[in-house]
Design a protein around this nucleic acid. Structure first.
Length: 325
DNA sequence: AATGATGCCAACCGCCAATCA
DNA sequence: ATGATTGGCGGTTGGCATCAT
């Protein structure tokens, strides 16, 4: 298979590369408005463009599409990106699906050029969202245990996603299962949400040990999976990111003032990771908000339950812009 | 004012999975 | 069942703009 190369390179024609001119944009825009994009491969010829189809598609999806919002990211958008990245990693298309009118490319660029550096400067590994320099002490150890469980959680989620996809395939191969699948209709919230993200809820309901969110002092359970060796212990599951241990420094604390006016990024880091539930239009079940300062710590099981519920809601329903921040 | 460093972002590249023939 | 085609995704790069010296 030749992939992108085959998509884009036509040996017979000298296809144009590089920045798009105003005329090219206009041609593409006009054509798509009139005919839709149809097959991207044939579009350039039909539209009179000396570009490959792939280039046209990218130009359209990342720039010309009318439903694209450009310009500076709001605090809310930044926080959402950071949170979702902590949960999903570099899955820009999934993250973009929860930031209306933002493209995955734009979010990726924003992460790579700003947010990543910002976290790095604060001593946080942007890949893992863990503190880089671990220090001794029970609080730190606890936090690292919690962070590693966050990684485990994500790994388990991916495993569940894989299994769901497998089951879904089986459904349509085995008539009996297919019948089961076709009736009754799925609950509305499941039908409306992006399929891949519902996995989170599926996984939550079926695979999370019952003690996951309980306040029982101790219990242990393992995620039974043929391919997963993940073990979850109630002792350490909650608070994937312990707010206290990210320190008192805000994401936008003095050291890296966004010489702003340009950008107000002065909320504390723990707010980024754990609070401000209300700013997603969700019930403010957390006992803190981004505007109340200082922020309480997230260490109790009940708070963590809210945290995970929040994340599950966040990734399984399209994001709504909060009223105002 | 000149020059090098850094930041930013549009666009490209290569890989992969789904679909088609 | 198989190979070719297509579209989508994430990583990377090139070039322009801005900043610092």
């Amino acid at each position: 298979m030749v992939g992108g190369k085959a998509n884009c390179i036509d040996p017979k024609a000298e296809l144009k590369k590089g920045p798009w001119s105003r005329e090219e944009d206009q041609k593409l825009l006009t054509y798509i408005e009139q005919h839709g994009h149809g097959s991207w491969r044939t579009l350039p010829t039909k539209a009179g463009l000396e570009r490959c189809g792939k280039s046209c598609r990218l130009r359209w999806t990342n720039y010309l599409r009318p439903d694209i919002k450009r310009g500076k990211f709001s605090n809310y958008e930044e926080k959402t990106i950071i949170r979702l990245h902590a949960l999903l990693g570099n899955r820009w298309s999934v993250i973009a699906a929860h930031l209306p009118k933002r493209t995955d490319n734009e979010i990726k660029n924003y992460w790579n050029t700003r947010l990543k550096k910002r976290l790095t400067r604060m001593g946080i590994d942007p890949a893992t969202h863990k503190l880089k320099n671990s220090t001794t002490g029970s609080a730190k150890s606890r936090q690292h245990a919690e962070l590693s469980h966050m990684a485990q959680w994500e790994a388990a989620r991916l495993e569940a996603e894989r299994r769901l996809a497998l089951e879904s395939k089986l459904m349509y191969k085995v008539p009996f299962l297919h019948k089961l699948a076709s009736s009754p209709p799925p609950p509305r919230h499941m039908a409306a949400a992006p399929p891949c993200l519902d996995v989170l809820k599926v996984w939550q309901s079926s695979a999370i040990p019952s003690c996951f969110f309980s306040s029982a002092a101790s219990c242990s359970s393992s995620l039974e999976s043929p391919t997963s060796t993940l073990n979850f212990s109630c002792n350490s599951l909650p608070a994937p990111v312990a707010a206290s241990d990210y320190g008192a420094c805000g994401v936008g604390c003095a050291a890296e003032e966004e010489e702003e006016g340009k950008m107000d990024f002065s909320y504390p880091l723990d707010a980024v990771y754990t609070s401000s539930f209300e700013d997603c239009g969700l019930p403010d079940f957390a006992p803190f908000s981004q505007d109340s300062d200082p922020l309480p710590l997230v260490g109790e099981f009940e708070d963590s339950k809210n945290y995970w519920n929040y994340l599950l809601n966040l990734v399984s329903s399209p994001m709504m812009e909060p009223p105002t921040l």
